[in-house]
Nucleic acid binder design. Structure first.
Lengths: 172, 172
DNA sequence: GTCTATACCCCGATAGAC
DNA sequence: GTCTATCGGGGTATAGAC
């Protein structure tokens, strides 16, 4: 693990747990066992460090959603939505936590790709015979999002049971 | 409006929109058109200012939930859950936004009262014939919470339509 | 790439006058 | 209750040596 990677790793953990503004570059440097100056050589600014993490986050997000977008049938797409929840890698928890931190404070542009995902859900639900697919897609999106949030914040002890309970409602 | 109230009002807005750590006492004082020292005379510290807002938030929350807790029948309780969403006062939006800011960063004790609310939902859903009332209560809680979030962050344009869509599922 | 030293500003908080 | 003045510390960022 290079020093650059150590910085990113510590910053990800701290930003995800405490929030961007609550974490100083000095404390990141100390925990990563590098000099504070090195952070600025590599990332220009504290914001630049966050931007790098955000890019990593976005590519991870795209990869995560891809199976649902490419499923052959509506039933398969709906099934994969819940697999996505079952298969969240604990190694990535901090990326999703960071996402929830960023989403809160305005001007976060997850909207573009979210719309494509919503459209996909809407299509799958319509194919599956739901009478109000757009409304239902919004709801499903919120349900899955809140479940992911509870998983990565370790607030969902009966994860498997809860996910299967959800799956029964949409992909029986 | 007293100066003390002006400070609280500005602090609420800024904390709710930008997050506690991103807002300085100097900028609050400037916007409220008071001296910075006055903030510390009234609230001891920046944290004390937040604590005052948190107390106001908690009493508002208790008042909001009360009708559901005191409903005579299960059907009425479920019906009131959605009324709660329909009747959110725009004047209070910033209090709920603040709540979502606070919930994110660790050690937030909304858990005690949340459990009573969850138990109440669970009871109402069991009475209404849902086969897995505990799971269903968790889900309903998340659905209502995410809808409230979208409302106060002004991300739910078709509010009434969405709420009635939800209501049909639980209190037909 | 990496460290040390340092600039410089802004932050939270206090003291004291009115 | 309210303001002005001020402090000490910690924040981001840069310069320059190695």
């Amino acid at each position: 693990m290079t020093k650059k990677e150590r910085i990113l790793s510590v910053a990800l953990y701290r930003f995800a747990h405490e929030g961007y503004n609550a974490v100083s570059t000095a404390s990141i440097a100390k925990e990563a066992e590098v000099s504070e100056g090195l952070i600025f050589k590599h990332f220009k600014s504290k914001q630049g460090l966050l931007d790098t993490l955000r890019e990593e986050l976005e590519s991870k997000m795209a990869a995560k959603v891809q199976p649902v977008m490419e499923a052959a049938t509506a039933a398969e797409a709906l099934h994969l939505v819940f697999d996505l929840l079952l298969n969240v890698d604990p190694v990535d928890f901090n990326y999703w936590r960071l996402q929830y931190q960023l989403k809160l404070n305005e001007a976060y542009e997850g909207h573009r790709s979210a719309q494509l995902y919503l459209d996909r859900l809407s299509w799958a639900l319509q194919e599956s015979g739901f009478p109000e697919p757009e409304m239902e897609a919004q709801l499903l999106f919120e349900i899955v999002d809140s479940a992911l949030k509870r998983i990565v914040f370790e607030e969902l002890p009966e994860k498997e049971k809860y996910i299967e309970f959800l799956r029964k409602k949409y992909a029986p």
